[in-house]
Computed example of a mutant assay.
Amino acid sequence: MSAVVFMALYRPKPGNEKELMEVLKVHIPTLRQEELITDRELLTLQAEDGTIIEIAEWKSTEAIEKAHQNSNVMAVWNKIGALAELTSLSTLAEAQYPFPNFKAL
């Protein structure tokens, strides 16, 4: 099973930017603690509209399934979902260009 790189995009709901950033501080450590992602360095970016982009690597496709059944992961994901809209790359203005640029966080 080969590792799978993922991009997670979170558009903060109005007034929830700081709280979202606090929850994201435990997101990747939780996935690592549960042995679902690799030790590849996390890349965290921000789009012009404030959307936060996390780029990390699942250990396998099975790890993705396990994450959705893990209570610790789901607790973090539920917090993220309450604070942000989960969105896709195609919704970002930057995605309209061949070489999009984002702010590194």
Rank of each mutant, 00 (worst) to 15 (best):
T61I: 14
D39G: 04
K79R: 10
T61H: 15
E22A: 14
K13P: 02
D49V: 05
G50L: 01
A47W: 02
A47N: 04
I52M: 04
L45Q: 09
S71T: 13
E19L: 03
T30K: 03
E35H: 12
V26L: 10
A47F: 01
K66H: 08
I28W: 00
V73G: 08
N70H: 06
S60C: 07
L36C: 08
S90P: 07
S90W: 13
D49Q: 00
S88C: 13
N70M: 04
E22M: 09
I64K: 04
E41Q: 11
F102Q: 02
Q33N: 09
M21G: 05
E94I: 07
I37F: 00
F6Y: 13
P98L: 07
E94N: 06
L92Y: 07
V4M: 10
D39E: 12
S2Q: 14
P14E: 05
Y97K: 15
E41L: 10
A3D: 05
P12R: 05
H68M: 14
A47G: 00
M7K: 11
N16W: 02
T38I: 03
H68I: 09
N78R: 14
T38S: 09
L45K: 09
S2H: 15
P12E: 08
P29I: 02
P14Y: 01
N70R: 04
S71P: 13
Q33S: 10
A84V: 06
L43W: 03
V5R: 11
V4K: 09
L20D: 00
N78K: 15
G81L: 05
M21Y: 09
Q46D: 09
A3N: 07
Y10H: 11
L31C: 01
G15M: 05
E19M: 08
V4G: 02
E65Q: 12
P100M: 11
P12F: 10
M21R: 12
I28D: 09
E62H: 06
V76K: 09
P100C: 07
V23K: 04
T91N: 15
P29V: 03
G50R: 07
M74T: 15
K103G: 03
A8P: 05
P100H: 09
K25A: 15
N101M: 12
N78E: 14
T38R: 01
M74K: 15
V4W: 09
T91F: 13
L24W: 04
L20R: 02
E62T: 08
P14L: 00
K66M: 12
S2N: 15
F102L: 05
Q33T: 09
M7L: 12
F99Q: 11
T87E: 01
V5E: 08
I80K: 00
Q69W: 10
L31N: 02
V76P: 05
K25L: 12
A93G: 02
S90R: 13
Q33A: 10
V5T: 14
P98K: 11
T30Y: 00
A47R: 02
N16T: 11
L83W: 03
E48T: 12
E22T: 15
R32G: 00
E48G: 01
S2E: 15
Y10G: 06
Q96N: 14
A47C: 06
E41M: 12
I80S: 04
S71H: 13
Q69I: 06
E54M: 10
R32P: 00
H27G: 06
K13Q: 14
K18S: 13
K13I: 03
M21W: 06
I55C: 07
L42P: 04
E57H: 00
K79C: 02
L89M: 13
F99E: 10
N16H: 11
F99K: 12
A82M: 14
N78M: 12
V23I: 12
L24I: 03
